[in-house]
Each structure stands twice: as structure tokens, then as C-alpha cells.
Amino acid sequence: MVNIKNLYKEFGSLMAVDDISFQVNQGEVLGFLGPNGAGKSTTMKMITGFLTPTSGSVSIDGDDIVNDPIKVKQRLGYLPEGAPAYPDMTTMAFLDFIAQIRGFKGRDKSRRIDDTIQRINLDKVVYQSIDTLSKGFKRRVGLAQAILHDPDVLILDEPTDGLDPNQKHEVRNLIQNMAKEKVIILSTHILEEVHAVCNRAIIIANGKIVADGTPTELEAKSDNHNSITISVRAAADQASELRKSLLAVSGVYKLEALSAADSGLLTYQVFPEANRSIIAEISQHIHQQNWEVEEMFVNKGRLDDVFRTITTGV
């Protein structure tokens, strides 16, 4: 279990991380979201012991990263932003170095390296020097380095940044396969990724946590969540009548016209009052009014909206 308590980091007069606390348990894949400069990377750098917090603590199963750095680092795997490595080494030499510094020797060492190469599909580039690799392979070498010692805690700073859709898919599968027995914390800009791999998401802005929940919980915070889009075949002059009658339905909070009526269709987005679902009421109303409905569907909240609303404070 990773326990982060009242973490602060000051750079000169800038408070990059401003009182962040959270806990992550085994089996959780935590997505770290936030605009650029929000403090995601700084927080990760403190969790991995690269930066020393101005105050606050990070511990893994009770061992503190500042007081007991070597012990904690042994249990951590870290993919830094941009997946830095030593460019003049070959993939093999690099992984061999990592395995040695992680304390593996002899047969155990070669087994670990082979295993990792298999898991990450690096066989093709084993004897190629890292600076000749494509961006995708470089990222994978970084990932290989992070998981080689089968760490209890995996910290990944933008693991899929710059990968093509197939590679992204592979990396996500890999993360999901490891998720059960590990604590995984990853940062990302790609919100669909949170859906694909994370079972928990934290949004930070200006160094503070502004939202924390499952992706579904966060989506429910969106205004669009459970709103209904409806297209009714009707003449333009019926618009105000239609509007009035929809607003009268119980649970309806507001209404937005989405398209002009020139096609003979009136399209509206109907928003429910907080935490209500109004699909039943609306369809019953339509039935009573005998409207000719072309299209009707329930909108799900989108993380993008929530992200934008929360981090820009609108």
C-alpha cells in the first residue's frame, strides 16, 4: 500500500505540490490527471524518491522513502517522463545493467531478462543500440526496465505518450495484466486511457487534488450525465410550445436547442435535475403527446467535460 500524506513541494516561490494526500492499495490502477504543470510529475518524482518533499511523507507499507530510500526503491518500478535510458547501450546491455543493479545474478538474472523481453516483445531489438530505436520501442525499453524486478509498486509517467494506437493497446493490456498484484500509479493526458485501464482517477490542478473517484463517479459529475437528446418531427412554429411542455416534465432542469428547425426537426438536449434519470418520464411524456420522434438517446458524462470544468474552475 502506498500512503501519501500532506505532501508539499516548493520551488522558490512556486508551490508545485500543495498538500496532497491519498492512499493506493494493491489491485488499484490509479490514473493521475491534470493539466500540464499541475504537479503530476513532481508528485511522482517525490513518490519515487527522486525529489525530496518540502514537507510531508511518502511510504510503502510503512517504509518511508526519505528515511529508508534504498529499501523503498527496491520495491518500486519507475518509468520517468520520456523514458530516458542510456542511448549508446544495446537493449540487452541496458536490461543487464538494470538487472545487476537490482541485485540479480547468474541464472536468475538471465531468466528475468528473457522473461521481460518476452513480455514486452523486445526480441527484435535486443542487440540494437537504444538511440537507433523508434519512439515506441524506446518507451517499451523504459517499461521493461521498470517491471524487470516485478516491483510491488509501479509508477508510470505518461506510459503511452507518443505511441501509435496498436502500441497503446499493447501497453494498456500489459498494465491490466499486472494490475491485480500491484499498486500502479500512472499519469496521462489521454482521458480514454483512464477508462481503458484505471479503476480510480485523481485530478489535480495547481498542486491540489480537485477530484478523486472511479472514472464512472467522475463522469457523473458532468452536466451532460444522464441528459437526453431528443429530435422531434415538428414545424418551427411549434417550438415554443414543445419547449414549454418538455420543461413541465417532472425532473427536467433545463433545455437546450441543438439545431435549427429548417429540416422539420426540432432537436433538444434535456438536462435532468442533479442525480436524476429522466428517461422514463420523457418517454412517457412523448407517448402521451403523440410526438413523432426521430431520435432519442441518453448522454453519458464525458471525462473531458469534467476535466475541463474542474481544472479551469468554470
Binding site: 518524482k45 519515487t48 524518491g49 527522486f50 530510500p69 534504498i70 526503491k73 527496491q74 518500486l76 519507475y78 520517468p80 517522463e81 520520456g82 530516458p84 535510458a85 542510456y86 542511448p87 538494470i98 543493479i101 537490482r102 541485485g103 526496465q145
Partner: peptide, 14 residues
């Protein structure tokens, strides 16, 4: 410059 210092110092070395 290359950022590998971050890799190096998060390995179990002082």
C-alpha cells in the same frame, strides 16, 4: 540533459 539522472537516482543506489 537526457533525463537519465532520474532513472539512475531512482534505482536502488545512493
Amino acid at each position: 540533459k537526457s533525463g537519465s539522472i532520474e532513472l539512475l537516482l531512482t534505482l536502488p543506489v545512493t
